[in-house]
Write a protein that binds this DNA or RNA. Structure first.
Lengths: 156, 156
DNA sequence: TGGGATAACATGGGATTTCATGGGAGGTCA
DNA sequence: TGACCTCCCATGAAATCCCATGTTATCCCA
């Protein structure tokens, strides 16, 4: 399975719910995580979302520090404090929380963008801009003008 | 399960009680600990809280020193002396003790912040400040500017 | 290959449950 | 006897469940 692929835009209803794209739900089901794990992206107006795979990435970052130390506490607050685990209802929908609205600027529509091991939640217009920008960078990278950074880059 | 995730702010009632967020109660129930284990954080104006998982971490710290030694005694007094095990009532509430008020500055509202294996109890305003600070540190840590301390580092 | 039958899916809304919060009554300890 | 602590019930708001509907994509058979 290719993971979370492609992008979709769905409407928010009067109760603040959106349908998660069916293909993304299928990936989540295979991953085995109950519900959805969401965390505000530290470097863009998007929210990262996924299941156990995404959670494992974050846990790995935390495990580099010993528990009960100031470093571990600070990192855990920064990561888990900016996280949420909304439930997915029987129809495959989640409610968009205030935290997500604030961080993304979402009002009445939501764009879901697949990134393989996770997907992102965007306000549609901002996603369009971000995507155009990303396309430029991708072109530069694929043409060899940018050298891959060593692992240890920022989260996500 | 991701453990204690996200953060919530609840109001203290006239009797000094607060509701523990339902999602945190669910984690505690799964953990199997009866009640709640609380210990003042040694490095911030917060109180660490959790169940068996937190208790095990503390025990591990203690086990690094041989029993019957002055070091072990001192650490045990420091740790357990700053601890409490408040009861959780039938509605999922606990009474905020004087020790917690003194250590956190809580007056009429309480913020619960998830850190995975434990959660912290904060005075809302102090939590906001601490979180902003933690976000900065996290960025530095994740970008590799801070070297992870080896497990077994000081309790700080 | 065309086109109708079927299934999947996003969306809307009513009904129900959960949850945080407030307050009363009985019990306990000093 | 009075302050405090449990246990229990009440309530309003918010979250969740469940069913309905229209539209689009998929399937199937001639």
């Amino acid at each position: 399975m290719a993971g979370f692929v492609s992008h979709f835009t769905n409407r928010l209803d009067a109760k603040g719910r959106v349908s998660i794209p069916a293909s993304f739900r299928a990936v989540l089901a295979k991953d085995g995580y109950e519900g959805l794990y969401c965390i505000a992206s530290s470097h863009s107006a998007a929210v990262d979302a996924g299941g156990n795979d995404l959670l494992a990435q974050i846990q790995t970052r935390l495990d580099a520090f010993a528990k009960l130390t100031p470093d571990h506490d600070a990192l855990a607050i920064a990561l888990f404090g900016a996280s949420e685990t909304p439930k997915i209802d029987g129809d495959g929908r989640v409610v968009i929380s205030d935290m997500i609205r604030d961080h993304t600027g979402i009002t009445d529509q939501v764009t879901f963008a697949g990134l393989g091991y996770k997907f992102q939640i965007w306000e549609p217009e901002r996603f369009r801009e971000h995507r155009a920008e990303a396309a430029k960078r991708a072109l530069a990278m694929l043409s060899g003008q940018v050298v891959p950074a060593q692992a240890q880059g920022g989260l996500a």
